[in-house]
Nucleic acid binder design. Structure first.
Length: 147
DNA sequence: CCAGGCTTGGAGG
DNA sequence: CCTCCAAGCCTGG
């Protein structure tokens, strides 16, 4: 089975996903959608359902590089909660700046919930648009309270 | 080797 | 409170 690509909606954005079985290779936010399916878990998550996505694996967490360790630590942040760049850095044994770099290059947002990593003062950055980060966090807070 | 990034904490106004 | 700045770490070019 080859790698599958597809997209689904999250608010005004389209979420493009490249994946194969339970392994996700790429996730990115775009203005336009593309044909094809996305993993069920991501579909439910983007629809605002309660979904932890732990059934999916990310290519980003494979290997022993520092970035991979950072991505694994980020996946451990519970849905509805956040951690700062500095906290993740201490947990992994690196510097906050390195965490920022890793988040900026995260190949699989959502699966590796980089939106849950915020600056010590303020929300921190998010590309292509910080508004996506705020929307994801708002949704997760809402879902957490719902139970 | 060097630039630059989704940081941070401290100094100084 | 706000601006400025360097320390510090990693990756890609």
């Amino acid at each position: 089975m080859a790698i599958v690509t597809g997209s689904c909606r999250f608010g005004l954005w389209h979420v493009h996903v490249a994946w194969q079985d339970d392994l996700v290779y790429r996730v990115r936010f775009a203005r336009a959608g593309i044909a094809g399916p996305v993993p069920e878990a991501i579909l439910r998550y983007c629809a605002g359902r309660r979904e932890d996505l732990s059934s999916l694996r990310s290519i980003a967490t494979e290997g022993e590089s520092t970035f991979a360790a950072i991505y694994r630590a980020v996946r451990a942040i519970p849905c509805g909660e956040t951690a700062t760049y500095g906290e993740i850095a201490r947990r992994v044994g690196t510097a906050p700046r390195a965490v920022g770099s890793a988040m900026a290059r995260n190949p699989t947002p959502i699966v590796v919930p980089c939106h849950r990593v915020v600056a010590k003062t303020g929300i921190g950055g998010f590309s292509p648009d910080p508004a996506i980060k705020e929307a994801l966090l708002a949704m997760e807070r809402r879902e957490k309270g719902r139970g």
